[in-house]
Design a protein around this nucleic acid. Sequence first.
DNA 1: TACAGTAGAGAACGAGCGTTCTCCACAGCA
DNA 2: TGCTGTGGAGAACGCTCGTTCTCTACTGTA
Lengths: 185, 185
Amino acid sequence: MTTDTEARERVLEAADRLFYAKSAHAVGMDELRTEAGVSLKKLYQLFAGKEALVEEVLRRREEAITAATMKYVLRASTPEDQILAVFDWMADSSGTTDFRGCAFINSYAELGPSSERVTAVVRHQKTGVRGAIAAMVAATGRPEWVADSIFLLFEGAMTNTAITVSSEPARQAQTAARFLLEKTA
Amino acid sequence: MTTDTEARERVLEAADRLFYAKSAHAVGMDELRTEAGVSLKKLYQLFAGKEALVEEVLRRREEAITAATMKYVLRASTPEDQILAVFDWMADSSGTTDFRGCAFINSYAELGPSSERVTAVVRHQKTGVRGAIAAMVAATGRPEWVADSIFLLFEGAMTNTAITVSSEPARQAQTAARFLLEKTA
DNA sequence: TACAGTAGAGAACGAGCGTTCTCCACAGCA
DNA sequence: TGCTGTGGAGAACGCTCGTTCTCTACTGTA
């Protein structure tokens, strides 16, 4: 006997994994139901529909990624190393074979230009990793454009790490970021 | 009376526009047929199927983008300005409301991890704009990591320009690239 | 034992997809 | 005028999807 909360958790976990791996439109509610071990009826009791589920998954993923990168950040000692630590997280993550880049960009890509889901994607750009980088760079007293640049390196490396299936782009981006930080010291 | 070549051209033009705007899976063959003004029969005479059409569209888009950026590049005088000119192209392109980022990343995003189409996407990473940037940077005698960094800035700016619907990321990336070039002079 | 209520399994439904097939109008030619 | 072949319009087919509905099994209670 499982509570609704447990079932909900299992669904969200399975949805996050499958949506990220195959993209949302390629995952059917039936496959999801099987993977989560939940009846179709309960699935629709817990979530209004597929779109609502996708949005919830994106919301949680934002938190999860921020938390994951923060674990790397907090391990570093100097402010500069903390900023560079997000690329360590990326390089390590690319080791897992199912790394598929930024879930928000991927989600944007499979959407039409006008969609409700775009809202969540755009919001992610303001908060999450971008916000963390901006805060850390500001704390070192460097100008805002340095943070913008490092975030663009981050995003570029995310997509290229996924496509090339290697940690090389993450390392390249880290090198560039380190250079930026050194020359703006 | 239209020849097969003309019909083929119309189909590819419409497919490129629609696929890019809505993503390939969201565009039906029937919509495409209507848009191109071609019978369904002829459509399947000209192309083996939807997947073949998508691959052909990606192939042509690679050429088109390279050509478009080259127009900006050749207008600049110094080698450094030539490199930075690709960001001018991006900033200008973002002005058109239907700018949706890098078609290859978008295509990757809507695909499963193992797909034939990934081949075309990966190939694009080696040639196209990346190749052009690499060649231009090498011509200035700067190390390879500078080219890698500028390409990552380019890719990051492509996605963020699309999501934020503004030319700001393109300008931010250009600023960073200029900084990199100046400090490695 | 009888009964009310719940939950699960999966059938069913309507829509949309890629692809194929049918039908018909019309051209060129004897 | 007949015949043949070509091409277009769109109906049809088989499939998958998101969502809903039906039926059945089972639980707790008197």
